[in-house]
């Protein structure tokens, strides 16, 4: 690994000032940063350790929202009583991600900032517009199965966003609080991650030196039910081929306030807004879920090896909606 300077500030303002002094990376848990520094994909001149900033609390705000510090570990968040009780989709998504060891170290802010798992991005040699803008995309004409998207892709990049946690947060609705040289601001979770478009090197809405301090979850809906379904090549410790986070309430026999988000199939945590519109106010039925699932992938583009993700993602939606509404939609696996 290349050498870097190390700073451990004790306050947010000092962290931002330190970060601005050099080509820097904030260090939270380090599970992405050190992985990528070892293979020379990230090359910070300075690492600014933010573990001394006291951003490790989970608190319920007066308006009912739940504010999660950027340094709260994935394990602590998944196991917190407020999350298990009010946001089962988030707890389930977190526990389906990575391994026990990684969840014990990885943080909320770091998970939001994690990088794609595209092997061409990671190999340091292949043309990759994200790593080296303008060099081309090796995935589009290459092997593009497991970690590649069918939604939100562009001719410059088709890497899927790898997070499970972020998919649940997209379904719940959240805001990202950031501090920067110009002060503080709130970014809607849905606007935080950027589509690759013609600038795949830009992955998020942070300005230079800005630091995520919290993610605040929307107040839980009364009587809402939620859950996360992750489909992958093996049963544990694997990235999603397709996943579905869903939250809804059932009132008078009809679905209200449905929120659906997809993982493994899109270049960012993906809200399926058209599917939500179809579900709103309707009585649950397998036909309705199929219609919603179809709409969710209306704009999908299949590549050579990942066309299967379109039906797989649709089945993830149908199965999760069936589970939440108590409607049998799939045959039990034997």
């Amino acid at each position: 690994m290349r050498a870097f300077d190390y700073a451990r500030p004790g306050a947010v303002g000092a962290a931002i000032a330190a970060h601005a002094k050099a080509d820097s990376a904030y260090l939270a848990g380090g599970t992405t940063l050190l992985d990528l520094a070892k293979i020379d994909i990230m090359q910070p001149e300075q690492v600014v350790d933010i573990n001394g900033l006291g951003l490790d609390r989970i608190e319920r705000l007066e308006d009912g929202r739940v504010r999660v510090g950027a340094l709260v570990t994935n394990t602590a968040l998944a196991r917190h009583e407020l999350i298990e009780t009010h946001y089962p989709v988030l707890s389930q998504a977190l526990l389906s991600g990575a391994s026990t060891q990684l969840r014990n170290k990885a943080t909320t802010g770091g998970n939001v900032m994690q990088r794609v798992r595209c092997p061409y991005f990671r190999d340091g040699a292949s043309p990759c517009n994200k790593r080296e803008p303008g060099s081309g995309c090796s995935a589009i004409g290459g092997v593009n199965r497991e970690t590649f998207a069918v939604l939100g892709t562009s001719e410059q990049c088709i890497a899927a966003h790898p997070s499970d946690m972020c998919v649940a947060m997209a379904a719940i609705g959240a805001t990202v609080s950031v501090h920067g040289p110009k002060g503080t601001r709130e970014i809607d979770f849905g606007a935080f991650h950027l589509l690759p478009g013609s600038t795949p090197e830009r992955e998020h809405a942070l300005e230079p030196d800005e630091l995520i301090t919290h993610v605040t979850l929307n107040a839980p809906e009364r009587d809402a039910r939620s859950g996360y379904l992750k489909l992958r090549d093996r049963a544990s410790y694997q990235f999603a081929l397709a996943s579905c986070a869903a939250q809804l309430t059932l009132k008078g026999g009809v679905i209200r306030s449905p929120r659906i988000a997809l993982g493994g199939v899109a270049t960012k945590p993906w809200r399926a807004l058209e599917a939500e519109r179809i579900l709103e106010g309707k009585a649950p039925s397998k036909a309705l879920f199929e219609q919603a699932a179809k709409a969710a992938f209306k704009t999908a583009t299949a590549y050579e090896h990942n066309a299967f993700k379109i039906p797989l993602g649709q089945h993830a939606i149908i199965a999760e909606l069936g589970k939440l509404t108590g409607l049998a939609t799939t045959q039990e696996a034997s």
Binding site: G30, T100, Q101, N104
Partner: peptide, 9 residues
């Protein structure tokens, strides 16, 4: 807590 010591400064 169990952790990967290879990914920890």
């Amino acid at each position: 807590r169990a952790m990967n010591s290879c990914l920890l400064l």
